[in-house]
């Protein structure tokens, strides 16, 4: 600390106007989207919580898939892809947490002051957060999928499950795992950007994605089924095999969404939440 006071004059020499040191004069000065993206990426990777959330999500997905795999017996007629992605039930929580962390990370300790005085236009920061969330959630989902494959199909050959990636249904289910987790992470980001408090955002996210759906499932009816179909969790239809979807649509009194209809619903939620978060960010004071 003492060194700091010794010769301030000398220390400032390199910062004199008129003689900027080469290290402080970038080719093109100013804020660009690429630079904001690099900054957001640095921020995401510089927090241990990001790593722990990713590791936790992968472990949760693989553990659940492994546990459910233990109940599979030869001749069960279960699709291998459905078993691999069955860990999504827990993994969606991890994805939600990841998004909420990115969305609320600015506001817990006032980091937003440093962030938005550097990028006063504000919206590029949110767009960059969308990109880093997509990359992080997709990477986590891909590793979780691989781990789930290894502990289910890879570890046991006696149950007779086969996975053919060229089969369109199988490909849709496996890709759906990544699409759904990315979607839920973006829902978390949107809620986080909107509410700015981690605990409030997490509670709201869990209610929207998981709890409300389960409460409504107890009381089926036209209204309850319609509302259930329009919740973000509807995106998980992408993970259900054709036979399961047929049963689902046959028993539902709500809209018949098929496999991709749920993805559209989830996409709608992501868009609406991010637009609302962006509106709040752009129009309102940051105090």
């Amino acid at each position: 600390m003492n060194r700091a006071t010794s010769t301030p004059q000398h220390r400032l020499e390199s910062t004199r106007p008129g003689s900027p040191s080469p290290t402080t004069a970038p080719a093109r000065p100013g804020v660009t989207f690429t630079r904001v993206l690099a900054a957001e990426w640095t921020k995401l990777l510089s927090l241990r919580s990001t790593l722990w959330t990713a590791v936790g999500t992968i472990l949760a997905a693989a553990s659940l898939a492994y546990a459910l795999g233990l109940f599979v017996r030869p001749g069960d007629d279960q699709s291998g892809a459905s078993l691999i992605v069955s860990g999504y039930l827990l993994a969606q929580l991890g994805a939600l947490v990841l998004g909420v962390q990115v969305g609320t990370g600015e506001y817990g300790a006032g980091t937003f002051r440093a962030t938005f005085t550097a990028v006063p236009r504000r919206l590029p920061v949110l767009v960059a957060q969308v990109v880093v969330t997509i990359v992080a959630a997709f990477g986590t989902a891909a590793v979780a999928l691989l781990a789930s494959y290894l502990v289910t199909i890879g570890a046991r050959s006696d149950h007779g499950l086969i996975v053919t990636i060229t089969d369109s249904e199988t490909a849709r289910i496996l890709a759906g795992f990544a699409v759904y987790l990315v979607g839920i992470a973006l829902v978390g980001l949107g809620i986080g950007a909107l509410l700015r408090r981690p605990s409030a955002a997490l509670v709201a996210g869990v209610l929207m994605v998981i709890v409300i759906d389960h409460l409504l499932a107890v009381n089926p009816g036209k209204i309850a089924d319609t509302v259930r179909a329009l919740l973000p969790g509807s995106g998980a239809r992408l993970l259900i095999d054709d036979a399961g979807l047929a049963v689902l649509d046959a028993t539902s009194l709500g809209p018949q969404l098929g496999a991709w209809g749920g993805t559209a619903v989830l996409g709608g939620w992501v868009l609406a939440l991010l637009l609302a978060g962006g509106y709040r960010l752009r129009r309102h004071d940051l105090t």
Binding site: V31, R35, A38, T42, K43, T111, A114, A118, V119
Partner: peptide, 12 residues
Amino acid sequence: RHLLAQARTHGI
């Protein structure tokens, strides 16, 4: 890392 993230927004 905090300073680096700030610097990156301007290519510093």
